[in-house]
Nucleic acid binder design. Structure first.
Lengths: 207, 207
DNA sequence: CGATATTAGGACCGTATGGTCCTATGCGCA
DNA sequence: TGCGCATAGGACCATACGGTCCTAATATCG
C-alpha cells in the first residue's frame, strides 16, 4: 500500500468520525482504530498533528462537494437557473445519503470551531467563499433572465445560509423532509428574482 | 448569597464560556474560574454534573431569547406581519450585541451535539419546536393577509433555518452585514406570501 | 449558646488526551 | 547483499478531564 493510499484511508476514516462526532470529540486514537493502523507512531508517520489532519479532511470534503455538488452549477448545456435547482436537489440528495444524520461537513466544523480556532475559521471562510463565488458566476450568467436589481452577492449568501440552516435543522429533528421543504421554498425564493416573462416553464414546474 | 444567586452566577459564567468555545471545550474548571468558585466541590454542590449544567444553560438561553426576541411575536397592538419583521430585526440586534462573534446559542449546541449526544439533541429539538410554534401562531393570526396556500409549518421552518444559517455564516465571516443582508432577503421572502392588495404599505417599506 | 447549612480549599482518582520515542519486522529496489 | 522505507507495536509523558471525598472555616438561625 503506497503512502498516499494510506493517507487516503486515514482521511476517509477521519472524515466519517469528524462528521459524526465533531473534530474535538474525535480523538487520534479513534482515527487510528477507524483506519486500522497499528499505533500512534504509524499515524504520526503520515500526519504531523491532529490539526493538520483536520485541515486536510476539510479540503477533501470540499473537493468531494465540489465534484458531486458544485459541478452541477457549471454544466454548460443546461439553463443556469435550472442548474441552480438541480444543485439544490443535489444538496438534498447528498444529505439523504447519510440518512439525514450527518450534516454539512462545513456547517458542522464552522459551528464547532469558528469562534475557538482561527486556523479552521479562515479555512472554512475560504470554503464558503469558493462556494459563493460559484453561485455568483451562475447568477451572472443568468443575468438576462433576472431582475435588474438582483444582488448576486447577497442572493448567493442567502442560498448558502438557507441550505446550511436547513441541514442543521434536519439533523436536530432527524427528519429529512425538513430539508426537502426548505429546499422547495428556496427554489421559490430564487424564482421570485426571475424577470417577468422569462423562464415561465421553470416557474410553473415549482408550483 | 443565596443558593439560587450562586446558581445564577454559575449559569451566567457557563453560558458565556459555552457560547464562546462550545460545550465540549468548556471544562468544569473553566466554569469554576469564570464564576469565581473556590473549588470543584463547590461547583458540585450546586450541579450534579456538567451535563445537567449544560441543560440548564440551554434552558436559560431559551428563556432569554423568549423574553427578548420571541416576545415581539406576541405584541398584541402591532400588525402580525410587521411583528415578524421586528422579530427578525431583533435577532440581528441580539447577534450584533456580541459583535457578531457568538452565534445563536441553539445553533451552536445543535451543530456540536445533535449527532453526538441524544439528551441535548432532544432538548434542542424542543427549543426549535417552541420557536417554530410561536411563528406558526403568528402566521395563523396573519392568515387573512396571506395567500391561501401558505404552509405555516414549512414557512416557519424556513425562517428559522435562514436565520440560523445566517448567524453561522456571520460568525465564520466575522461580518455582521452578512446577517443583515440575509435578514432583508428573508423579509422579502415573507412578503412574497402576502396576498395581493393586503399590507401594501408594509410591502413598500421593504423595497 | 449550639445546630445546621453554606463556603472554602485541597488531595485525590481513573481515564483520556495529543504527542514522542524506541525497537523490531517485513519488503522492494539498486 | 544491503540500504531504506513502510509497517507494526508498545512504552511512556505531561496534561487535562469529570468527578469524589474529606476537612475546616464561616454564616445563619433557633
Amino acid at each position: 500500500m503506497t503512502m498516499s493510499d494510506r493517507r487516503t484511508q486515514i482521511l476517509d476514516a477521519a472524515a466519517t468520525l469528524i462528521s459524526e462526532r465533531g473534530f474535538t470529540s474525535t480523538s487520534v486514537d479513534d482515527v487510528i482504530k477507524g483506519a486500522k493502523l497499528s499505533g500512534k507512531s504509524h499515524f504520526y508517520h503520515y500526519f504531523k498533528s491532529k490539526e493538520e489532519l483536520g485541515y486536510e479532511v476539510l479540503n477533501r470534503q470540499f473537493e468531494r462537494f465540489a465534484e458531486r455538488g458544485l459541478a452541477i452549477l457549471r454544466e454548460p448545456m443546461i439553463d443556469p437557473l435550472e442548474r441552480l435547482n438541480l444543485f439544490i436537489d443535489a444538496v438534498v440528495a447528498l444529505q439523504s445519503e447519510s440518512g439525514g444524520r450527518r450534516g454539512s461537513p462545513f456547517g458542522n466544523l464552522a459551528a464547532e470551531l469558528a469562534d475557538a480556532h482561527e486556523g479552521f475559521r479562515v479555512r472554512i471562510e475560504a470554503v464558503f467563499e469558493r462556494w459563493a463565488s460559484q453561485i455568483r458566476s451562475l447568477l451572472w450568467e443568468a443575468r438576462p433572465q433576472l431582475h435588474d436589481d438582483v444582488d448576486a452577492v447577497r442572493l448567493s449568501r442567502f442560498i448558502i445560509a438557507a441550505l446550511e440552516g436547513a441541514v442543521l435543522m434536519t439533523r436536530v429533528k432527524r427528519d429529512l423532509s425538513v430539508l426537502e421543504g426548505i429546499a422547495a421554498d428556496l427554489k421559490r425564493f430564487i424564482a421570485m428574482h426571475v424577470r417577468d416573462g422569462a423562464a415561465i416553464q421553470l416557474h410553473r414546474n415549482l408550483e
